[in-house]
Design a binder for these strands. Sequence first.
DNA 1: AAATATTGTTTGTACATACAAATATAATTT
DNA 2: AAATTATATTTGTATGTACAAACAATATTT
Lengths: 140, 140
Amino acid sequence: MGKEKTKYCTCLYYSANALSRIMTKISDEEFAITGLSSSYAFLLMIVNENPGVQPTEISHQMQLTPSTVTRLIEKMEYRNYLERKTVGRTTEVYPTKQAKELHPKIQKAWANLYNRYSTVLGKEFSKQLTADIYKATQVL
Amino acid sequence: MGKEKTKYCTCLYYSANALSRIMTKISDEEFAITGLSSSYAFLLMIVNENPGVQPTEISHQMQLTPSTVTRLIEKMEYRNYLERKTVGRTTEVYPTKQAKELHPKIQKAWANLYNRYSTVLGKEFSKQLTADIYKATQVL
DNA sequence: AAATATTGTTTGTACATACAAATATAATTT
DNA sequence: AAATTATATTTGTATGTACAAACAATATTT
C-alpha cells in the first residue's frame, strides 16, 4: 500500500483497482454511523426507496451480479432489515421498520461521503472524474 | 449488472467499483494466455524484474496490503513460480526457472491489455483517465 | 396440450483482499 | 547490557464478489 510511485501507475487496471479499494475504505468509514458497510447501506437505500423491488432490478442499480445481490439480501434479512416475498418466479424485497428508521442516517452518511471526497479532490475534478469513469464503464 | 443507468452513477464510490470490476475481468481475460490471473501475473512481473525483492516493496509496487502479498507469494511458491529466502527479519523473493520462462508471455499479455482498453476508450482519453485516477488515489 | 426455451433467483464453491493479532528480528533508549 | 520500541512478515479469520450449475416459473413454439 502507501503512496509510492509504481511503474504500474500508468495501467488502468492498476489505478482503477487502487481507487476502488481506497473509495471502499472511505465509504465504509462514512457509512459506519449506520452500522453497515457500503454495499448494505446502498442496498437498503434502494429498497427503502422502492419497496417491493426485485433482485434483478437491484442488481442493475448496484451494478452487481444477481448472485451477489441474493447474498446481500440474505444477510440483511437475517439481520432483520429486509424481507423477501416470493411471487411466482420473482421475489419482492421489502424494508422492515428497522430499515425505514435507518433511512435518514443512511442518506446523511451518503452526503458525508460525497462531501468528503469532493472536498479533497475539488468539486469540479471529482465530478468530472466520476463522469469519466462512468463513461468508461459504459463503453468497456 | 448491465449497462442501465443508475441513480448512483454520480457517486465516485459506485463508479470506481464498477470500473474496477470490469477492468479486472478484462485484465484476467488478457492474462489468461499466461495461465495466471492478473494479480499473480503482476507479482511475477515484479519479481522477475527485481529478483530478491522483499514483500514490503512488492506491497508498495502493487498497492496491496502486506498480508495480501504474503498470500499471493504463498500461492506462487506452491505452484513453483517463486521461492522465499528468509534473511533476518526480512524475506527475499526469487523467481524460479518456470517464472523466468513465462516472462515474455506476461509482457505480451500486459501489452495486449493496454491495447485493448486504449483502443476502446481512445488513446488520449484512456491516458488522461488513468492519470486522473492515479492522481485521485494519491490525494485521497 | 406437450415440448422447448427463456427468465428470475438461489446455491455451491472459489477467489482476492483486508484487518487485527502474533511472531520474529533489529534498532534505540536507558 | 536490558528494556523498550519499531519494523517486516505471517497467520487466523472475515468480507465482498463472481461463476457455473441448479431450480422454478413463465412464455413460446410446435
